[in-house]
Design a protein around this nucleic acid. Sequence first.
DNA 1: AAAGCTCGGTAACAAACGTTACGGTAACAT
DNA 2: ATGTTACCGTAACGTTTGTTACCGAGCTTT
Lengths: 196, 196
Amino acid sequence: MSLPADRAAQGEALSRAVWDVLAQQGLEKLTVRAVAAAAGCTTGLVMHRFPNRRALLLHARQLLHDTTRQRVEALEAAATSPRAALRAVLRQGMATDPETTNWSIVWLGFLAAAVADAELIDMHRRNNRAWRQRVERLVAAAAPDWSVDRVGAVALGLIAMTEGVAALAAADPAVYPADQQERMLDAALVAYGLDC
Amino acid sequence: MSLPADRAAQGEALSRAVWDVLAQQGLEKLTVRAVAAAAGCTTGLVMHRFPNRRALLLHARQLLHDTTRQRVEALEAAATSPRAALRAVLRQGMATDPETTNWSIVWLGFLAAAVADAELIDMHRRNNRAWRQRVERLVAAAAPDWSVDRVGAVALGLIAMTEGVAALAAADPAVYPADQQERMLDAALVAYGLDC
DNA sequence: AAAGCTCGGTAACAAACGTTACGGTAACAT
DNA sequence: ATGTTACCGTAACGTTTGTTACCGAGCTTT
C-alpha cells in the first residue's frame, strides 16, 4: 500500500529516529546515515521522504512540539482544579523519569541546532511563546485576583525553573533525582502561594 | 619569543575563538577551520597548540568555567550583605546583556556537545556541582535559621530558574528582556523570603 | 656566518558527510 | 500476461571534515 497515511507514518518514524539519535549520540552525530540506521532503513528512504536533511530536522522539531502539546492538554483536562492543572503541567516539563529526561536532551539538542538555523529558531520561539501563554493562563486561573504583572513574573519564574531543572537533571541525573525536583516545585508553589 | 606564557595566551585566544564560533555559528559549524578563521590564523597553528579538536574544546570549556568563577567571586566579595551577594551572583547567571547572553548560548552549545562526550559531561557535572554548592552556601548565609532541606530546595529552585531563564532569553531576547528577568528574580527572592 | 631549532603556514590525506542518479522489485492496471 | 508506476535500496558524486606531513622563515647558538 502506498497511501499517504503510510508516508505520514514513515515520516513520524523517521522523526522518532531523529529524537533517538539526538538523545543518544548528540547533535554532532545527527547525520542522515545515523537516522536511517536508527530507523532500520537506508539513507535512500530518508531522502525519498524528505527533500534534505534540514526538512527532516524541521519535521522532527514540529512533531516534538505537537506531541508534547497533546500530552499537556490531556494533563490539563484531567486535572481536578486549576492549581492541580498548573502543577501537573509544570511537572511534566521537568526531567523526572527516563521519558521526560530523554525529552529534555532532545529539546536541548534542537535548541543548540537552532543557533545557526533561522527556521529552527523561529519554531522554537513560536512554541515557547505558546508555552508561556499557557502557563500564564494556568497561573491566572490558579490566582484570579493577581495583577497581570504578578501573573507574568510568577509564570516566568515557574517556566524558567522547570526548564532549567530539566536541563540540569538531564545532564546530571544522579544529583537531581525526581523527588528533589518535585520538592523544589512544591517549595516554589508554596512560596508563590499557589499550592494546592 | 616562545615563552610558555605566549603559548598559554594563544591557547586562551583560540578558546575565545571557540566561544565566538559556538555563539555565532552554532555547534554544527564548530570546525577547526572555523575556529582558526575566527582566531585569525590557520588550522596549522590550532593543531600545533592542541593535539586534536577534542582537546581544544575541553580547554575552552574549562576556561569558560574558570572565567565565570572569577567573575562570581569578585561579585561575591564586593557585596555588602549575604542577600546582596546572593542576588548579584544569581543575576549574572541570567542573560540580561549581550555578554551574559553570549555566555548562555556558549553554555548551551557545550552542554549539547557533552551528550556524546564523556569528558565534557564530566566537566559539566563537576562545574555545576560546585555552582550548586556555592549557591547553597549563599542561601544558607542569607537565611541562617533555615533547615538544610529548605536551603537545598530553595537554592535548587533559584539555580534552575536563573539557568532556565538564561536559556529562554538567549533563544528569544525580544520576549525575555532584562528588566523582566530581574523582576522575575526579585519576585522569587521575595516569595522565598530572601529579599534584601 | 653557518648550523640548528622553533614556530606556523601550506598542502595533502583518508574518512565521513549531504545529496544525486541509477537499478531492481513488487503492486496495480489493462 | 504485459506494460506502467511507485517505491526503496545501492552506489556513486563532490564537498567538507579532522588530521598529518612537509617546508620555509626567523631566532639562537657556536
